[in-house]
Computed example of a mutant assay.
Amino acid sequence: MKTPKRTLFGSLAVAAVLATALGQQASAAPSPDDAPPKVSMLGAMERDLGLSESQAKARIADEAQASKAEKSLVKSLGADYAGSWYDAKKGTLVVAVTDAAAADAVTAKGAEARTVERSSSELNGYMKDLNAKKSAAPDTVAGWYVDAESNKVVLPTQDVAAAETFAEKAGVPAEAFQAEAAPERPQPLYQGGDAYYIGGARCSIGFAVTGGFVSAGHCGTTGSTTSSPSGTFAGSSFPGNDYAFIRSSASITGTVNNYSGGSVAVRGSSNAAIGSSICRSGSTTGWRCGTIQARNSTVNYAEGSVTGLIRTTACAEPGDSGGSAISGNQAQGVTSGGSGNCSVGGTTYFQPVNEILSAYGLTLKTS
């Protein structure tokens, strides 16, 4: 399926984490004509993030600890929580709070505290304001997302003045947003991961679930049939969301194709912290890695806006869409779309997998 033009976190338990994240179970290979570069997920982290093998392994373990700490702090801090991110240089989770008195709770979890002005709840409220006016967004505005580190909502745009006017009319205070010049023209990226076919078009298996697999919604509409493996789109949502559930009786394991041999085991779907590494597997460019820049991002495709996406620095190209995105051994999402390519770099967005599971009442298969 061709892409239309303007129409888409000291290391702990390293060995234990890698034994699950880098499992070596068999996985079906793509057809010879579609085979991407044979680079493993660990190899892609070394290449794309500039890490040595030992650094990549340590980072996987550190990020797993950051994810656990973040989940606990979001709950305990309540209204004082203002976002968090993984600082790769320090190997530390940084947690923003609006009340300096809450810092002790943060440091007690081994994280670094930072006091800011706006809470996560306030920033998410501005996101809702922008989403409510998305139909009035200029074509030059690629979308918007909360940047926890700057404590603002960021709008990537090719026209800064137009983006500023749009945000102000949507009711976002000038001090709470930043229009950022960026040459982004997001578009859906079709195919990716282990291939499946819809007529003469090709998309990807995202993650195996009980009763079939999940993928990107722009790959097919409800009722569409697939082959290799055979199945039927039991549900699909795009735009607004970008997810689909394909019901299939085919044997699909809870792993992700590693391409260089074997596979990466999926152990769950806990959200990785902002700043954590994320790697995606696709049939065009194989394993490509980057970092998570934001969650709950809105992206404006020509076909319409999609909300609640994971924004990342991982690259992707047409043919990678629908594929699995994973941090360590935890499923994060399926490839939706983005800008740029794997020669010059780019921005890629992922539909969170937990939202898909919730929407269709599905259970993720693990290995």
Rank of each mutant, 00 (worst) to 15 (best):
P188N: 13
K169Y: 15
A174L: 14
A179H: 02
Q191M: 11
V172Y: 00
C203H: 00
A179F: 01
G192L: 03
P186W: 01
Y190V: 00
G200D: 06
F177T: 04
Q191L: 13
G206F: 05
E184M: 09
P186A: 01
P186L: 00
I205K: 04
E168S: 13
A170P: 06
E180P: 02
Y197D: 14
P173C: 05
G206H: 02
Y196S: 06
A176E: 06
V172M: 02
A170T: 07
Q191V: 10
I198L: 02
D194C: 07
C203A: 02
G206C: 04
P173E: 04
G200M: 06
E175R: 08
D194Q: 03
P183W: 02
G192I: 02
K169I: 10
I198R: 07
F207Y: 07
G171D: 01
A195R: 14
G171A: 09
T165F: 03
A167W: 03
E164D: 08
L189N: 11
R185E: 15
T165R: 03
E164K: 10
Y190R: 03
F177I: 00
A181Q: 11
Y190I: 00
A176N: 10
A170L: 07
G193S: 11
K169W: 11
P186Y: 00
Q178G: 13
G206V: 07
A182S: 14
D194S: 02
A170I: 14
Q187V: 10
G192F: 08
F166E: 01
Q178H: 10
R202V: 14
R202T: 13
D194I: 06
Q191D: 14
Q187W: 08
Y196R: 03
A167Y: 00
G193D: 04
D194E: 10
A170H: 03
G200P: 15
V172N: 02
E180M: 14
E184R: 10
R202E: 07
Y190N: 01
Y190H: 12
P173S: 08
S204T: 00
A167H: 00
A179V: 01
R185D: 14
A181H: 12
P188E: 15
A179C: 01
V172W: 00
A181R: 11
G192S: 04
I198A: 13
K169D: 07
F177L: 04
Y197K: 10
Y197T: 13
V172E: 01
P183D: 07
I205M: 03
A174T: 09
Q187N: 09
Q191H: 12
P186M: 00
G192V: 08
G192Y: 08
C203T: 00
R202M: 12
A176G: 08
A176D: 06
P173V: 06
F166K: 04
Y197A: 14
G200Y: 11
Q178L: 13
A181E: 12
S204A: 09
L189F: 15
P188I: 10
E164Y: 12
A176V: 08
F166P: 11
A181M: 15
Y190Q: 01
Y196K: 05
Y190S: 01
P188R: 09
